[in-house]
Each structure stands twice: as structure tokens, then as C-alpha cells.
């Protein structure tokens, strides 16, 4: 479980995170949602230790990050896997080297052992026969799979994904979402995912935090989000015309039912 309390982060004069508190649960896919520029990436990078919040605490199963010693921080790092927005695969390395890289850096495993583990995780993300390909030879979906494989190769306790669906077609997006959710359950990982994709929200939103202008505007899950009356959420969820029409027709049906009920009652 990851708990954040009142974190604030600024760049120069602009405050991007304005005091956010939240809990991310173990074995679940926790979503951070919000418009572009709402601070999702900054929030995730603050959890990762790439950004340091000026105010607030972040605790990983009780370990408060800012109070850890250098060695403890390093140990915590080895327990974190990250899938970056554009996959961030190393261009100069092939798939196998990319996935094995964290093991080479964090462990003193022999290269034969590393290779076995790499094949195991590549298998897990359904990517075969791509070991010797370079990132620029892979499709977006395959790159994402490699990035996920690289993030889970060292058996992380915490997995962070920044917009894992960006740049993918809807079908591939769903497969990637499902993969992340399966892995989260299978290995009991605390997974935090940034997204603005409504499909993901509905499909894997076991816990959802909605950010708006650096503030946590709403919190709930994928069932509650459809029923909420929170104006910002409604605007966000129904931002596309298609969704708006669906909502309108649902509301109309509701009204009809209600008037039917009234007739019956008479």
C-alpha cells in the first residue's frame, strides 16, 4: 500500500500539485485520471523519487520515503517498476538487453540466469521471437509489452504506468490494460496507472483518483464514477459527443421510466 499525505510540488512559481492525499491499494489497479496538464505525470514521478515534493510525505508500506537512508532508498528503488508514457526503451539496446537491464543494474545474477528470467517475463507479456529486435523495429503495442516486461523483471512490489495506452489503438489498449491488471493480481503488486482513457477507467478502475488543477477533486471506483453528480467528473467522463449522447438517451429513458411509473401509480 502506498500512502501520500498533503504533497505539494512546484516548478518555479507554478504549483503543480497543491496538497494531495491518497491511498493506493495492494493487488489493485489504482488509477490517477485527469485532463492533460492536470499533474498526473508529476504525481507519478514524485512517487518514483524523480521529483521531490516540497511538502508532504509518501510512504511505501509504512516506509516514509524522505526519512529513508541512502541504502534504504536504493533498496526501495529495486522494488519499483515503471512503464513510461512513450515506453522509454533504450534505443541502443535490443529487446533482451532492455528487459535484462534492471537485473544487470540491481543484482549480481549471472548472464545465463538473467537470460532465463528475461525469457520468462517476455513469455508472460506474450512477446516471443523478438529478443534480438531493436525498439524501432517494434510496433507501439510490442514496445509497451517490452516496457512492461522490463518493469516487472525484478519482481517489483510497486508498478507505475504513465498513460500505458497512449498511442495505441483501442483493441491493443484493452489487451495492455488487461495484461497490467492480470499481473497486478497475480503478483499482488501495488499498481498506479495514469490515464485519461475512459475505456481503461471503466475496465480496470478498481480505485480512481481524479485530479483537476493539481487538486484531488474526486475519489471512487469505476461503478461510482458513472453515478456521481460531481460536475467536473461528469464533464471529464462525458467529454466526447458520443458519451454525451449515450448519457442523454440514458437520462431520457430514466425520465420515461419515471413517467411510466407515475402512470402506473395512478
Amino acid at each position: 500500500m502506498i500512502e501520500i499525505k498533503d504533497i505539494e510540488k512546484s516548478f518555479g512559481d507554478t504549483k503543480v500539485l497543491k496538497g494531495i492525499s491518497a491511498t493506493f491499494e495492494t493487488g489493485k489497479t489504482n488509477l490517477i485520471i485527469g485532463r492533460s496538464g492536470s499533474g498526473k505525470t508529476v504525481m507519478l514521478k514524485s512517487l518514483l523519487g524523480i521529483h521531490t515534493p516540497e511538502v508532504g510525505t509518501i510512504s511505501f508500506d509504512g516506509r516514509i520515503y524522505s526519512e529513508l537512508s541512502k541504502d534504504e532508498k536504493r533498496k526501495l528503488r529495486t522494488e519499483i517498476g515503471m512503464v513510461f508514457q512513450g515506453s522509454a526503451l533504450f534505443d541502443s539496446m535490443n529487446v533482451e538487453e532492455n528487459v535484462g537491464f534492471p537485473l544487470k543494474m540491481f543484482t549480481d545474477k549471472k548472464s545465463r540466469v538473467i537470460k532465463e528470467r528475461v525469457n520468462e517475463v517476455l513469455d508472460r507479456v506474450n512477446l516471443k521471437d523478438a529478443n534480438h529486435k531493436f525498439p524501432n523495429e517494434l510496433s507501439g503495442g510490442m514496445q509497451k509489452r517490452v516496457a512492461i516486461a522490463r518493469a516487472i523483471v525484478n519482481n517489483p512490489k510497486y508498478l507505475f504506468c504513465d498513460e500505458p495506452n497512449s498511442g495505441l489503438d483501442p483493441e491493443t489498449s484493452i489487451l495492455i490494460d488487461e495484461l497490467i491488471q492480470e499481473i497486478t493480481r497475480e503478483y499482488d503488486i501495488t499498481t498506479v496507472i495514469n490515464t485519461h482513457d475512459m475505456n481503461s477507467v471503466l475496465q480496470i478502475g478498481e480505485k480512481i483518483i481524479f485530479l483537476k488543477n493539481g487538486i484531488k477533486e474526486w475519489e471512487g471506483n469505476n461503478e461510482q464514477i458513472l453515478e456521481t453528480r460531481n460536475k467536473s467528473i461528469v464533464e471529464f467522463v462525458y467529454s466526447s459527443d458520443l458519451f454525451k449522447k449515450v448519457r442523454e438517451s440514458l437520462l431520457e429513458e430514466d425520465d420515461e421510466e419515471r413517467s411510466n411509473d407515475l402512470h402506473l401509480n395512478k
Partner: peptide, 17 residues
């Protein structure tokens, strides 16, 4: 610079490099 904008440098740092 490409490594910076594609977050490869962040990825290195996350891996303790």
C-alpha cells in the same frame, strides 16, 4: 537530448543508474 525527451534518462535513474 532524444534520451531526455523520450524519458530514457528518467528510466535509467529509476533503475538506480
Amino acid at each position: 537530448g532524444t534520451m531526455r525527451v523520450t524519458e530514457q534518462i528518467d528510466a535509467l535513474e529509476v533503475m538506480g543508474v
